[in-house]
């Protein structure tokens, strides 16, 4: 699989991480994130251990560290919020470089930054090593309701088609001299959005017609089976198990 164009977030490869069944990876990431979130923020060494674990996964999966770092940019809005906390939070204050910072705010910021970053990096690794299509098969395997999986699958297929339609509408607007300048122009944009919705809705009806014509009766046929063996589950358990051990070790010591 994966010939031709791949998805933007997916990094084609044949590493052991790539080859794990998607449902194993999904559960592993979920348990890992739960372990991270449940770790008290004062146990700084546990977070260092988590980061090392993710670095090890990235190394095994041959996902370049630089690529992971670049993609963590998605959490920037949260970082901005976290950076504000030491200034606006109340409670005891510490003084550093002439700034008056709230101690509780500092811990809060660290908490958000550390846990958020670990969660984001784990997700980036999951997305880089798993095709979106396989992720859907994975959640289906994990008993996600079929209807929701179908909706997500159609989103995956038609996101580009709708974006292309939106681009054509923007060009058509611009060709007739429209340029969004201030808030009053929002009316025009809102109307375009309405038109886009109608077009997408009509496309939905046509797609349904095409599906019914080929025998669709409410259920998508299962075309690819992604079975997981005990060995797969064991391999996938390595990450969350190590994280749990790290969490427990530091709570005992």
């Amino acid at each position: 699989m994966g010939a031709g164009h791949a998805h933007r977030l997916y990094l084609p490869g044949r590493s052991p991480v790539h080859r794990l069944p998607p449902q194993c990876k999904l559960v592993a990431v979920l348990v890992f994130v739960l372990a991270v979130v449940a770790t008290p923020r004062e146990r700084i060494w546990a977070f260092a251990a988590y980061a090392l674990l993710l670095a090890a996964v990235a190394a095994v999966a041959r996902v370049p560290y630089r690529l992971v770092l670049r993609r963590t940019a998605i959490e920037l809005p949260f970082v901005a919020f976290a950076l504000l906390m030491p200034f606006v939070a109340t409670g005891e204050r510490v003084h550093w470089l002439g700034l008056s910072l709230s101690e509780a705010g500092l811990w809060g910021a660290w908490n958000i930054l550390a846990k958020g970053t670990l969660g984001v990096v784990a997700s980036i690794l999951l997305a880089a090593t798993t095709e979106p299509r396989l992720l859907l098969l994975g959640v289906e395997r994990l008993r996600m309701p079929a209807l929701i999986v179908q909706i997500a699958a159609f989103m995956l297929r038609y996101a580009d088609v709708v974006a292309e339609e939106m681009r054509r509408m923007r060009i058509a607007r611009a060709s007739r001299g429209f340029e969004a300048r201030d808030l009053r122009d929002a009316r025009v944009l809102a109307r375009s959005l309405g038109a886009l919705f109608l077009r997408s809705y009509e496309r939905g009806e046509r797609v349904h017609l095409a599906m019914v014509s080929r025998g669709y009766e409410g259920r998508m046929p299962v075309l690819r089976d992604v079975g997981a063996t005990a060995a797969h589950w064991t391999a996938a358990a390595a990450l969350p198990a190590a994280a749990l051990i790290a969490a427990v070790a530091w709570s005992v010591s």
Binding site: R133, R157, V161, L209, A210, M211, R214, G215, L223
Partner: peptide, 23 residues
């Protein structure tokens, strides 16, 4: 149908061609 984007609704060509016979 006239618009292939309406006809091809599965994630890959193979799965799309398999849809009818699988149904």
């Amino acid at each position: 149908f006239q618009d292939p984007d309406d006809q091809l609704f599965m994630p890959t060509v193979r799965e799309d061609v398999a849809f009818g016979p699988a149904a």
